[in-house]
Design a protein around this nucleic acid. Structure first.
Length: 416
RNA sequence: GCGGACGUAGCUCAGCUGGUAGAGCGCCGGUUUGUGGUACCGGUGGUCGCGGGUUCGAGCCCCGUCGUUCGCCCCA
């Protein structure tokens, strides 16, 4: 019988990989707390409309890349492809539109039916932050500062750069978009095939093209800055001031446009060159139109998300596997005494294990293999005297410790 | 969804112009149940990703398929 393989694009997190993930999520959670963000957990599947509405039904993302299925009642459900839409849904459902702003942190699995690549899986994990209900540039700066702080705490801020752009308000954006369409339409002959399609579907994305000829064209394309309304310009200026005040460095990259129409004003990406073509590590923007688009009131918001897999790959120092104190009986010590000491150590917060079988030699071998910090010998003879031998595995050094000491001050005994 | 590369033991790999699988490491056991890492001895290990085809004969050649990987598309 053949073994069953994991579903394409899914993988198991075990050992060091699990520790890397846990470290990313734990760190982000802690830093988000410093910024006053509370964690929300929303379901990993939703009514399909939560996502189709936020993304727009025409987007081929919806038809091609979502994990959608009918449940037994014929209702269309979707494994969440991202966090923002679900958070907006939860905001409305829980009537939190009445108590703004809401500062939300989330972490968990997401699902997209894509061709897997490095750091890009079908079930993957994201952390994210949403600051909902604040229209001021200070909010954008705070959200970005949080993202930066997370990367810094993970020790990867040094080789990640913040790229920043503005899409302006609706009016600015509409005018710019039209100018881009006009410009690129006049150069249809030199546009790549992909970009010709983008010209119809999403002209802004031509700015992101990797095609050499496209990039040459893009260099002379109309710039957003020329189309900013006075209000949008003021917002953009203030955002950069605030980032300066927060001490966060950035470079302006006019080609960061994000994919979807509900974005406005701020867009940003933290980018690294260490992950091949999948260089974006944490990205977000302002999405003032989204909550309304999902059937809620007109509420401004800004947020970002980051892929845990990619962050985990970038970590340089990984937490070592935890080490145990291993109890090794010698001879045939009283079993009740053995169990009692096991529990006494665990009750004091010491990671304590006991092997289940084997000769003394075998048990020592296993203790070594599992990288035990100490071995606690429970010798038949010593037990009678109320005494145990503790061996420090690294040095091999041994000493005698009384049962009373073990039961009351185990932490200091095993501190070294 | 599209294109390139790759799939031999748990891992890293070898396997000649086609003649029906090998090493190292690991794993398990042993060197008297009072001491691990070293050493020695022994053992477990593979439908060569899967299915078809060519052939007297396929790990090797051909086709398909699944998976991995690099890139494209997309990126919420």
């Amino acid at each position: 019988m053949s073994t069953i393989q994991p579903v394409r694009g899914t993988h198991d997190l075990i050992g060091e990989e699990q520790r890397r993930h846990a470290h990313v999520v734990g760190t982000a959670r802690e830093i988000a707390g410093f910024y006053g963000f509370d964690e929300w957990s929303t379901p990993i599947f939703e009514d399909t409309r939560v996502f189709s509405r936020s993304l727009g039904d025409t987007s081929d993302v919806v038809s091609k890349e979502m994990y959608s299925f009918s449940d037994r009642d014929g209702e269309s459900l979707t494994l969440r492809p991202e966090g923002t839409a679900a958070v907006c849904r939860a905001l409305v459902t829980n009537a939190l539109t009445q108590s703004l702003p809401q500062k939300v942190f989330y972490a968990g699995p997401m699902f997209r039916h894509e061709r897997p690549q490095k750091g890009r899986y079908r079930q993957f994990h994201q952390i994210g932050a949403e600051l909902i209900g604040a229209a001021e540039p200070l909010a954008d700066a705070e959200a970005i500062a949080l993202g930066h702080a997370v990367l810094k705490a993970l020790g990867i801020a040094d080789y990640v750069t913040l790229e920043l752009n503005t899409l302006g308000d609706t009016q600015s954006r509409t005018a710019w978009r039209q100018a881009l369409v006009d410009y690129f339409s006049a150069h249809k002959g030199t546009l790549s095939e992909d970009s010709l399609a983008r010209l119809e579907k999403n002209p802004l994305r031509i700015l992101d093209s990797k095609d050499a000829a496209d990039r040459a064209l893009v260099a002379d394309a109309p710039m957003m800055a020329e189309f900013l309304t006075p209000e949008a310009r003021a917002f953009w200026d203030e955002l950069r001031q605030k980032l300066d005040m927060f001490g966060i460095a950035y470079t302006i990259n006019p080609s960061i446009v994000r994919g979807l129409d509900y974005y406005n004003h701020t867009t940003f990406e933290f980018v690294t060159n260490r992950l091949g073509s999948q260089g974006t590590v944490l990205a977000g923007g302002r999405y003032d139109g989204l909550v309304k688009q999902m059937g809620g009131p007109d509420i401004p918001a800004i947020g970002w998300a980051a892929g845990v897999e990619r962050l985990a790959m970038l970590l340089e120092d990984v937490a070592p596997a935890p080490r145990s104190v291993v109890i090794v009986p010698v001879g045939s010590p009283d079993e009740a005494a053995v169990c009692q000491i096991l529990q006494a150590l665990r009750a004091q917060g010491i990671r304590t294990e006991i092997g289940y079988k084997g000769s003394l030699r075998k048990r020592m071998e296993r203790a070594g293999k599992q990288n035990a910090s100490h071995v606690l010998f429970l010798g038949e003879e010593e037990l009678v005297r109320g005494v145990f031998r503790v061996k420090v595995m690294e040095s091999g050094e041994e000493r005698e410790v009384s049962r009373d000491a073990l039961c009351s001050e185990a932490r200091s005994i095993f501190a070294s």
